[in-house]
Write a protein that binds this DNA or RNA. Sequence first.
RNA 1: GCCGCCGUAGCUCAGGGGUAGAGCGCGCCAUUGGUAAUGGCGAGGUCGGAAGUUCGAUUCUUCCCGGCGGCACCA
Length: 662
Amino acid sequence: MVAITLPDGSERKFDGPVTGAELAADIGPGLAKAALAVRVDGALKDLSAIIETDSDVAIITSKDDDALELLRHDCAHVMAEAVKELYPDTQVTIGPNIENGFFYDFARDTPFVPDDLEKIEARMHEIVKRDETITREVWDRSDAIKFFKDAGEHYKAEIIEGIPGDEEVSLYRQGDFIDLCRGPHLPSTGKLGKAFKLTKLAGAYWRGDSNNEMLQRIYGTCWADKKQLAEYLHMLEEAEKRDHRRLGREMDLFHLQDVAIGSIFWHPKGWTLYRTVQEYMRKRLEDGGYVEVNTPQLVDRGLWEDSGHWEKFRENMFVAEVDESRGGGETHAEGEAIPGAEKEAQTKFLALKPMNCPCHVQIFKQGTTSYRELPIRMAEFGSCHRYEPSGALHGLMRVRAFTQDDAHIFCTEDQIEAETKTFIELLASIYKDFGFEDFVVKFSDRPEVRAGSDDVWDRAEKALMDATVAAGVELVMNPGEGAFYGPKLEFVLRDAIGRDWQCGTHQVDFVLPERLDASYIGEDGAKHRPVMLHRAILGSFERFLGILIEHYAGKFPLWLAPLQIVVATITNAADDYAAEVMEAMEESGLRAELDVRNEKINYKIREHSHAKVPVILVVGANEADAGTVAMRRMGGKDQEILALKEAAARLRDEAAGPLAGG
RNA sequence: GCCGCCGUAGCUCAGGGGUAGAGCGCGCCAUUGGUAAUGGCGAGGUCGGAAGUUCGAUUCUUCCCGGCGGCACCA
């Protein structure tokens, strides 16, 4: 006797073991048809799975959230089947689900081209139409390895060899296609439906290691019905419109150019935005007890050797070679011959700083520091250069020249927790001011290769963890991803199309103070090592502004908008009054422009709306007579008639932004 | 750095072995118009760069540069 409890609490009894399919049929023919899989005591299983003991069981249909996982994974299998049919010389490797879809990696001598995607997709629809039964088989491991090796599927064989000995080796068969898979799967390919689309083609290294061969990856998206698919595709299109690279051009904020790859040319409007954010940050740091410093761009190799960067970070550094015996002080790229410098050359290497920390330690080391002075929170809007791999460059998000809102907190070990908590609170408050209520915090703990004793790591990790809990922040664990010198927190924001970017960071460092011999005088009169906390909130201005542009889709709140107000006239008769309005705005410290062109008001509204100017003050003869303005907000249809004085006061208050009153 | 795709006017894109075209934008003229497209005229391109094939290359081939999407990288 097997008793099945359904989600609604009702119970069904069977004489013996029963499959999910039988259970569904027992409940009703409609459900039997719609059933895709079962959840038995919390675990998702095939519809054909035999339930032998009393269990809580839910029948999964396409309406369940779980169904998407099944559909997407089946979609990957159907794609692999299609690929094997069309291109038999292809080897299949792995094909997991990802957010919104799936991918499958294939090994093939000739790479796929975009046209192939259409053919594969068409074949996938055929396979769905064939409605092939999907069956699960458990194989003997060595039989499975032999089977795949004989079939020329060396990657699959390698995967099976890696499966732990106590695990079952299960294969799923649909038509002539058979694949190693943990499952579960749909009962047949027909259940997949039509709501899928292959989206992109990419190279990907076998097992994610760049030393391995590159495979061909095909990405796809898959949904429960066509409506969901259409919605998703539409969302992608909309997201593209808020791409910061596109808005940067459309809104005349910045540009990139071959002559300085990976560096930003900031235009007046973009630079206004940048400065607004920077001035805001400066104020918040000041209030937060930071002192601001500025340190050199070009720093002698010796310091980088001492700090360890020359050894660990050399590949990412821009290095200039200088012959100091020459009067001109010319610099040359490393390796380039210096003309006429065979003799007497006194060559020196200088590097553009990729980080600010070693320089900050130099400031810390000037004179002596008492324990009474700690913590010292030393901030710098530090310009850094890193030679990033060409394939990594991405608009403002990944550049070779950037400015961090960097700071190093020199403190005692006892102060780590409190400083961390204070930092997280400051960060959350700042993110909130920029409109980011949600962000992901990752905790990266000790990596395999690390400096410092386990005891020190225990304490550092505990301090970070305790501080995070105290700050009420939820963590995602990122095991083994800490820096070699200490654990770190990463604060991650998301761009318009769902790509994650690390912005804020907070790292505990016991190593650099040691390497650069930083010390303070303790209560006992003896020298002690300070701990360094490396921390940034925005991360880099470039990346953060990229995220900010996408977050607001260019429609900035008043305090951030590069151009806040346009005063637009209806007729020339209002020109003089418009100039008065303009003056009132400027006196209120607002960034305003006057538009007295001989154009229709429709034309002006449309143009400034496209430019995403938050406020348009329309003035015509009526307003001039009454001493008012007609205020129109970005995106709104209605207008508000206000006395000029009141409009100026209200806009001034609003434009003060989050720093208002401070 | 690796794989694939792409590079034609300021922008979006069409075209194609005989030195190029649209829309928007831009300029000029007319229009003084009450809240998201007024009308007319006009300017603007070494078709990413370098070689090669050809009588002739923007078009075909090769290499280089850059961009895009991934992968790898990301103190």
